[in-house]
């Protein structure tokens, strides 16, 4: 589905379904008639029936709609910005973070601290990574700036804690290696756009 049909503002030409709402009464007599009609049509009991039906469904048929938080949680939008997750590469299982330090730099509440080093494989390695959630304002800049989609906002929105400053370490946020198959891609700001494939240019190859 493209965006074209949303941009078409000519009412009637789109594929809309119109509701028949009848005519709105204007004169006093018409209004009086409507009241009398509704009163003696026992519409009240229609409403009461709906309630009764749902009660029966919930109590006897096990179709309860109430979410029993905190035992039950509703799925949230992928764009919701909650506690950060650190993602891994699906192929190798290695963490995605390359230690570029852009999240640390862009963080407007200065809550990200990282240390990196030169590892044995002559690569840049993250030796320490913490986020101070007492300061974090969940603005999402870190996820947006991350060139590797390594730091993202996850769905963990319960952030109440007993201490004002609570830190998270890299390991706490990293996808557990045994749950790699459950790792979800991030769709928030900074994620790959749906039409990214169209924008990719081929690398020049002279050979």
């Amino acid at each position: 589905m493209g965006l074209e049909q949303f941009k078409n503002r000519n009412v009637g030409t789109q594929n809309y379904k119109m509701l028949d709402l009848g005519e709105t009464p204007t004169s006093g007599m018409d209004k009086f008639k409507q009241v009398v009609q509704r009163t003696f049509k026992v519409e009240l009991f229609i409403g009461l029936w709906v309630t009764l039906r749902e009660m029966i469904n919930a109590l006897l048929r096990g179709q309860m709609h109430t979410v029993k938080y905190p035992f039950e949680k509703l799925p949230i939008s992928p764009r919701y910005r909650a506690i950060h997750d650190m993602l891994r590469l699906l192929e190798s299982g290695h963490y995605r973070c390359i230690g570029c330090g852009l999240c640390e730099k862009i963080c407007i509440s200065n809550c990200i601290t990282m240390n990196t080093r030169y590892d044995e494989n002559q690569r840049k390695e993250v030796s320490e990574y913490t986020i101070n959630f007492g300061r974090c304002i969940f603005c999402g800049y870190c996820a947006e700036v991350c060139p590797e989609l390594a730091i993202v906002h996850g769905p963990r929105y319960e952030t109440a804690s007993e201490q004002r400053a609570s830190f998270s370490l890299f390991e706490d946020m990293l996808t557990p290696i045994d749950q790699l198959n459950l790792q979800k891609e991030y769709d928030g700001f900074g994620a790959v756009t749906p039409n990214a494939d169209d924008n990719i240019k081929q690398t020049p190859l002279a050979y």
Partner: peptide, 28 residues
């Protein structure tokens, strides 16, 4: 992203300065 010189790199600065947005050729 990981290069130490990033941020004080002559090549980075000059590439920006001369507005090179894409690379049209390459070598093996």
């Amino acid at each position: 992203g990981v290069c130490d010189k990033s941020g004080e790199c002559d090549l980075q600065n000059k590439t920006m300065e001369f507005g090179l947005e894409e690379q049209a050729f390459t070598a093996r």
